[in-house]
């Protein structure tokens, strides 16, 4: 699984993409955020990743996911089972010119 990072998220991580291993049963956006936190949490936490009230990980306000080129709000992406070897975009709030 590859996390693709754009805009501010790319700058903070220092890379455009991060390869993540998501074991069976964790191929959801929650599993992806957990793996992303383990791989680059120190650079992303507080800006791209945030802690939920329940103690889990969520995207920071205004951030969205991109799955199969579809842009999804975090709530819309909750129940999606991610394809093994696929790509998930982490998109900061938009700001066209």
């Amino acid at each position: 699984m590859t996390a693709l990072l754009f805009g501010e998220a790319c700058d903070l991580a220092g890379t455009r993409s991060i390869e993540l291993h998501l074991p069976d049963g964790t191929r959801t956006v929650h599993g992806l955020l957990q793996a992303l936190h383990e791989a680059a949490g120190a650079r992303l936490h507080g800006k791209v990743l945030a802690s939920s009230e329940a103690g889990g990980l969520v995207l920071a306000p205004g951030y969205t996911f991109m799955v199969n080129k579809r842009i999804l709000a975090p709530r819309e992406a909750e129940d999606i089972v991610l394809e093994d070897g696929g790509e998930v975009g982490i998109l900061p709030p938009f700001s066209g010119g």
Binding site: S95, G96, G97
Partner: peptide, 11 residues
Amino acid sequence: RYKKETPLWKK
């Protein structure tokens, strides 16, 4: 609309 809805980022 394009400013709000299009995946574009400005630094």
